[in-house]
Design a protein around this nucleic acid. Structure first.
Lengths: 337, 337
DNA sequence: CTGTTAGCGCCTTCAG
DNA sequence: CTGAAGGCGCTAACAG
């Protein structure tokens, strides 16, 4: 039954090189106790045979597979893909591979994928949630280190990396203040998102420090362009003198910019607008392009990978680490850009 | 050196159940020659120990790993993620897992990832290109079946699945004709994309069949909103009587819709607009929402997975299979929707 | 029905 | 410096 192995095996290489399997192994792995000429021979044989060592066998031996699982609930991949790319970077090409599994927000599916991953002996797990808000930890002991990325775990004993939403609000507000705006409106999304409140908090903090207050209570709604348009009109209606708007997402900002422009406001001349997420497809297509907050997701993935790596190596971390965001300045706040 | 295995091993289960390893194996795998009471005991022991079989060991034995690699060059994940989800679906939860690797469009990196995948004994490979145009096949013999998805291989001996771009153009044109539009403009993207030309070809074919011709030569440019806006204005300038526009992407359509509206045209009253890709973030945020072509990427992923599965099972396919697209009707062509 | 044996491909002692 | 032997966890033959 045992299907013939695909590629050449170490035995094949050894035979071709005229040495024993053990010697071939040592030669290829850079062990010292091999004569140079022998090593040479083995290498030639290996490349002649296109030898690729069987990671399964190696993994079986060491009890480690050189793979980690990335379990995501983020259907769209809007967040998990940059994170995955960052993780791939951090692990360094080739020595560790990443299994991506999509649980599609279904806990049963998640449990299932977890089992599949575990059976493949992943050395660790990165869990990416669908929202920036905290999520329940994986149920049951995974048996391997876990790092939660983007969505932190509600258990403070777990290791989580997320972006600092309070700071992102602060950044946006400080930028508007810096360019001389003082009558600022806030339009954000679904109020059930804790992150939406955090960002507002950051904005209020920064405004207070500058001796300002927003022109109105923050407007909560949904993460859509339509809401951005409607809210911007409402804001303008009640506070025609508004000169800056901070939005909870690029979609909202996009809608706000369109509505403001249609109401005759020039941007950034009359009103400056800041978005959030740096979703390029939206932010660069806007007129003018959106100044926005980038969550440095790739960096977040790298960090998660490094923490996981350390945990695998026996140095686990605990608690939530918040990574800084970055302001990306474009035309919606600075006309010279 | 051999690190202790993480979870319980089959030996542990057997010991706890008071049977031999072989018997435990048979019991858990549903082999017939086991007494029911014994099987019962083994199952209880296994679940008491949270036993998860080691897929690596199994893979080593069978020469198959129960994993496939998904090698993508599509940075954004705009196309590869739906394809991956479709593939996951088709493989059925758990029995086969998918390794996602991003080559980032770099051939060297691709070669590297390929090696990593091969060393992990993937049973097959799905290769997803960055564009719908044909791409060079993987260099060197992978040693396992390969299916090219989205981007077909230039080698007709390879197995490829892609979406039918000629048909997508046809669909769009037929829809406009069906709703009574006869003065149709075409705005598409980068002329170096073969798919852009294919779609135009489909449009022309369908129009010809309806006894119509476009109002102007197709406008090629870039896949951006800015180009969509500019081209729409130019089109309107030269052909003020245009009553339908077919766009090569949703970004272009989005720009076109905005520009047309700003020029005082009502949509779809005066001008109906069709996009391409069904990129929801763009198509649903538009005013009105975009009628567009959906490439059924998830279905494409499923199909790729099935073809790969068959190939792994010894029934390889050859040539390029084109999957149909689907028209998604929204407000930019039908006001009642 | 159950247990023993062999071996998948690899690496690491330990002898020569 | 090189080779023989053992074993990682599992399953498929074959004995009992």
């Amino acid at each position: 039954m045992t299907a013939k192995t695909r590629g050449a095996t170490l035995g094949d290489v050894a035979k071709l090189a005229g040495v024993s399997i053990a010697t071939a192994s040592k030669a290829l792995n850079g062990r010292a106790q091999v004569r140079d000429s022998t090593r040479e021979k083995v290498f030639r044989a290996a490349s002649a045979l296109d030898f690729v060592p069987n990671a399964l066998a190696r993994g079986l031996l060491f009890g480690q597979s050189g793979t980690v699982g990335l379990l995501t609930s983020d259907l769209e991949g809007r967040f998990s893909l940059p994170i995955m790319m960052g993780a791939e970077d951090a692990f360094g090409a080739g020595s560790t591979s990443v299994f991506l599994c999509d649980a599609r927000g279904d806990p049963i599916r998640e449990q299932h994928q977890l089992k599949a991953l575990l059976s493949r002996q992943v050395d660790g797990l990165i869990v990416v949630g669908a929202r920036p808000d905290p999520r329940e930890p994986l149920s049951g002991d995974a048996g391997v280190p876990v790092v939660y990325a983007y969505s932190p775990s509600t258990d403070p004993q777990d290791c989580s990396v997320t972006s600092d939403n309070v700071e992102s609000g602060r950044l946006a507000a400080e930028h508007l203040v810096a360019i001389g705006r003082g009558r600022i409106g806030i339009i954000t999304g679904d109020p059930s998102y804790g992150a939406a409140h955090d960002r507002v908090e950051g904005v209020l903090e920064a405004l207070a420090r500058a001796g300002a207050t927003p022109v109105a209570e923050p407007l909560f709604g949904s993460w859509s362009e339509g809401w951005g348009r409607g809210a911007a009109r409402a804001l303008l209606d009640q506070h025609p003198d508004v000169d800056g708007v901070i939005c909870g997402s690029d979609q909202i900002a996009r809608g706000a910019v369109d509505a403001l422009r249609e109401e005759g406001r020039s941007i950034p001349g009359d009103v400056a607008v800041v978005g959030h997420d740096n979703w390029e497809i939206l932010s660069t297509g806007s007129r003018p392009p959106l100044t926005t907050i980038d969550m440095n997701l790739q960096e977040l993935g790298r960090r998660a990978a490094n923490l996981l790596f350390d945990a695998i190596g026996g140095n686990p971390s605990h608690g939530v680490e918040k990574l800084p965001c970055r302001l990306v300045v474009r035309g919606s706040t600075l006309s010279t850009v």
